[in-house]
Design a protein around this nucleic acid. Structure first.
Lengths: 131, 131
DNA sequence: TTATTAAATAGTAACAATTACTAATATAAT
DNA sequence: ATTATATTAGTAATTGTTACTATTTAATAA
């Protein structure tokens, strides 16, 4: 069996993600963390992010556009994605637990969880006429 | 301005997708269509799928795992994804239009649409003990 | 402390999904 | 039939991500 060993890099990745509310991509985190650890490897960032997801300490967001994003807030909540600028923000809406049961009635299997992404135009893009 | 021109390949791609209910990936469609057009190019499949999405004739599904999938049913409906085998199936649940309004109250922008993916274990995988 | 063991790393190569490029072909309009 | 341009096949390039490997680092035992 594999025992987990401490690593500064992993701590730094988690700390950096926790300090942010913009749900950065692996590459964005890589850029941020290189300020503190100039020769950290992109592979290390990916490996640790996936490990942290497996450990349930962070969560991965797949919003449809390019790269996956990461979120240090593991409590069930939803996200709002701007179709214009791609920004992903938290949506503090109470988790809709009942819709799993709703879905269960029509699914050919056992429904365990769900994800919801809301799409639209964010405030800034709206004020700047979508530019 | 660009005017659309007919192409057999595009028609074939759309027809093939409409005949299927398993939401194939671009590569899966490529394999299927090569039976009729043995030297169609994978790039042609991707280009036309994206074009059809832009035209609103089909929709793209991004369920988190590997490749994007495509669905000829553009009516609002949801999907069930098996965490075990990756199968994506339709979930004939009435569209939850009210949750856009719910989300609107907490979003920092204009909510226009949403996607929901339900995750769990499909019937087959359950009966085969997740194998 | 030093030695031992195994996990983690940096750096690089490989991979998978997708898009871009280009010369040739097919479609629509004249 | 001629012309203009959208579309194609084939290939190369890009992007996001994972795998590999020799070296380093952390935890543990002597």
């Amino acid at each position: 069996m594999k025992t987990l060993k401490y690593s500064r890099q992993r701590e730094s990745i988690k700390a950096c993600l926790m300090s942010r509310h913009d749900h950065p991509t692996a590459d964005a985190l890589y850029t941020l963390i290189r300020e503190e650890y100039p020769n950290i490897s992109l592979g290390t960032v990916y490996r640790n992010l996936n490990l942290l997801v497996e450990l349930g300490e962070i969560q991965k967001l797949t919003c449809g556009d390019g790269a996956d994003r990461f979120d240090a807030d593991t409590s069930p909540h939803y996200h709002f994605v701007c179709k214009n600028c791609g920004k992903v923000s938290d949506l503090p809406l109470d988790p809709l637990v009942n819709i799993n049961h709703l879905a269960q009635e029509h699914a050919d299997g056992t429904v365990e969880s769900h994800t919801i992404y809301f799409y639209g135009t964010c405030k800034e893009c709206f004020e700047n006429n979508y530019r």
